[in-house]
Nucleic acid binder design. Structure first.
Length: 111
DNA sequence: CCTGTGACATAAG
DNA sequence: CCTTATGCCACAG
């Protein structure tokens, strides 16, 4: 079976796709929403394979502090930041400014 | 079944 | 501010 059909990864991608432009969320928030609050690392790992998916905005997923910890996995050194700023999210020193303002909570938005 | 891994989170020094 | 260490869990081989 293809990995995209697997439950956990599939859900991660599904939630990631639901993130609106200009909004961001954290690995932990997604993990918790999926019912695996302590598998935030899995979310990140899942994003590791998001490159082969078109509609998975991995750049909108950051760590709890709003740091672009996954930027090294993008092509350029600052591609992730540029993508975010392109959507209106200000990033300084690899960290999202006004994170709470841009934060997208799956529980709040999806119920 | 066992081992390695990972874009986290948290704590400690 | 930094680095280490630990827990945590799903997946790959």
């Amino acid at each position: 079976m293809k990995p995209e059909n697997q439950n956990f990864f599939e859900k991660v991608y599904e939630v990631a796709r639901l993130i609106p432009e200009g909004r961001v969320t954290s690995y932990g928030a997604i993990a918790k929403y999926l019912g695996a609050a302590r598998s935030a690392r899995m979310v990140g790992w899942a994003m590791n394979g998001s490159g082969k998916y078109e509609d998975v905005p991995a750049h909108r997923v950051v760590n709890k502090a709003g740091l672009l910890t996954g930027k090294h996995h993008f092509d350029g050194t600052n591609l992730m930041q540029q993508l975010l700023e392109n959507e209106g999210v200000k990033v300084v020193d690899n960290q999202i400014v006004n994170l709470e303002k841009h934060f997208w909570d799956p529980f709040k938005e999806l119920g």
